[in-house]
């Protein structure tokens, strides 16, 4: 075999490995989904969704966990969206190129890399203890809001950057103030991109477990929360506690809860990808 043939062989071998590895991810995903659906689908019914958690695995449901997740997400949205979009607008449209701005940017990049459990410790120290909100929905939502803020800020900035400067100039030239221009031209044009970022941030938040454990989410919440100061559980928390129980029935219940959590996560991601494609097409024109 000459050199040329040898090189060709190596090239083809690597290509095959590349294909295998690329499909490996999909294969693992398929195994994961198959095993979980096989184990948990028998639990997916109306009772499972509307029952309280229980010590008996076959009776246990995810009612309070789902409601906790919905409440927590709602509050997180209310807190993080205005702050995240506002900060993004500030950095993109107002901030001058000073050292302080550079510091802000480096800081945001760094925050995005801080492990989520550290945010839990922050929440525990500040919201739970210092402000004395306790292990409440409010503490959880504030903690998650800080956690996803970098994602929303970065998405907002990217979306605003994509708005052609000619549109902003046109608005200024007609006598619009900066805020009028942002409100009437910049935000409507960047809406799709910002929305995509928010949904992706939410899909990240909905699966978070570690920071909520630290902040004090409960493993067992037998009642529906009424106020933001109530204790709470969430779907991932419920999955975690069921996973750590030795009784076999709980693994099945956990699988059922995972199916619900994955549906929520995948739907959110799908919607985000849909908006992203639609928005990119619109910008392309």
């Amino acid at each position: 075999m000459n050199n040329l043939q040898k090189n060709k062989l190596i090239d083809n071998a690597f290509k095959t490995i590349g294909i295998l590895f690329t499909y490996l991810g999909i294969l693992i995903l398929a195994i994961l989904l198959y095993k979980i659906i096989a184990a948990g689908s028998s639990r997916i019914n109306w009772d499972f969704l509307t029952s309280l958690p229980s010590r008996k695995p076959e009776k246990a449901g995810i009612y309070t966990a789902i409601l906790g997740t919905l409440d927590l997400m709602m509050l997180t949205i209310i807190i993080s969206i205005p702050i995240g979009i506002g900060a993004g607008i500030y950095l993109e449209e107002y901030a001058k190129k000073t050292k302080l701005t550079t510091l802000l940017e480096i800081n945001i990049a760094n925050l995005a890399g801080v492990p989520s459990i550290i945010y839990g410790l922050l929440g525990l120290g500040i919201f739970v203890r210092f402000f004395n909100f306790g292990g409440s929905i409010l503490s959880g939502a504030l903690t998650l809001s800080l956690l996803i803020l970098p994602i929303i800020i970065v998405a907002t900035r990217e979306a605003i950057k994509a708005v052609p400067s000619s549109l902003k100039e046109a608005s200024f030239a007609l006598g619009a103030t900066k805020w009028q221009t942002i409100q009437k031209v910049v935000l409507p044009s960047s809406f799709g991109g910002i929305l995509t970022g928010i949904i992706l941030a939410m899909s990240r938040a909905i699966g978070e477990t570690a920071p909520l454990i630290v902040v004090g989410a409960m493993a067992y919440v037998p009642f529906v929360p009424h106020s933001v100061f109530d204790t709470f559980s969430v779907l991932p928390m419920q999955i975690f506690t069921w996973t750590t129980r030795p009784k076999a029935g709980f693994a099945i219940a956990a699988s059922g809860a995972i199916i619900i959590l994955l549906i929520l996560t995948f739907v959110m991601n799908g919607v985000a990808v849909y908006f992203r494609n639609k928005w990119q097409k619109k910008l392309g024109n």
Binding site: L29, L32, I36, I206, G207, A210, A254, S255, L261, F266
Partner: peptide
């Protein structure tokens, strides 16, 4: 597909 792999909550990976 790769994005989905990244979007699966870690608690699910733990169970896996």
């Amino acid at each position: 597909f790769l994005e989905i792999l990244a979007a699966v909550p870690t608690v699910v990976y733990g169970f896996f």
